[in-house]
């Protein structure tokens, strides 16, 4: 099993619903977020282009945050999902500094927090992650890459995509359909 998410930058409208839904679903404290939306505007009026990306932890296959964690608090879980075990964490911040995507933040309770792919609270109960389930444009796809029939495998097969800074060697599993 290899969980992954794909984001259709051509349909995403940048509404940030994914961010609000993640916040209420995962009790992300006010003032913090596990996912965020980037807008890139390129060109000169009126020759313009916009790419909109809903971003979050890439659940890297070669995750620097797991590598640098001195206690094993940051670890790989089901389907390659990268999680933090707050009871093992000393709060050294190394994983936060090690993430090329700045996907982690220090939770006010002392440990780093980030996207979990909603693994335990939703995915393992047969639900889609909160952000995927709420997205009004249905531009987020989630599923098992090893299952050719999963939403994410299917859409990656037919669409062009990219990942973010693959040259960082992290083997990210957040795909952007372009």
């Amino acid at each position: 099993m290899r969980y992954a998410m794909a984001v259709d930058t051509r349909k995403c409208v940048g509404c940030s619903d994914c961010v609000v839904a993640c916040q209420t679903e995962n009790n992300v404290p006010i003032g913090y977020c596990r996912d965020w939306v980037v807008e890139v505007v390129d060109g000169t009026f009126p020759q313009l282009e916009i790419e909109i990306r809903s971003e979050r932890c890439n659940h890297c296959e070669n995750a620097p945050c797991v590598r640098c964690c001195p206690t094993g608090a940051s670890h790989y879980s089901d389907g390659g999902t990268v999680l933090v075990n707050s009871r093992k964490c000393i709060g050294c911040g190394a994983c936060i500094a090690s993430c090329p995507y700045d996907a982690r933040y220090p939770h006010p309770d002392g440990y780093p927090d980030k996207c979990t792919f909603c693994l335990t609270n939703r995915v393992q109960k047969g639900l889609k992650p909160a952000c995927v389930a709420v997205c009004p444009t249905k531009c987020l796809y989630f599923g098992d890459l090893e299952d050719p029939n999963s939403d994410v495998s299917r859409v990656l097969k037919v669409r062009k995509w990219k990942t973010l800074i693959p040259e960082a060697g992290t083997k990210p599993h957040l795909y952007f359909l372009i």
């Binding site: 940030s16 619903d17 609000v20 839904a21 209420t24 009004p136």
Partner: peptide
């Protein structure tokens, strides 16, 4: 109260609220 989610049977939202409704 924790969260609000769309009702799948609703024709106005098809189970997906917008950011304001979610918030």
């Amino acid at each position: 109260i924790k969260k609000i989610e769309g009702n799948d049977n609703d024709l106005n939202c098809n189970g997906r609220l917008c950011p304001r409704g979610t918030g």
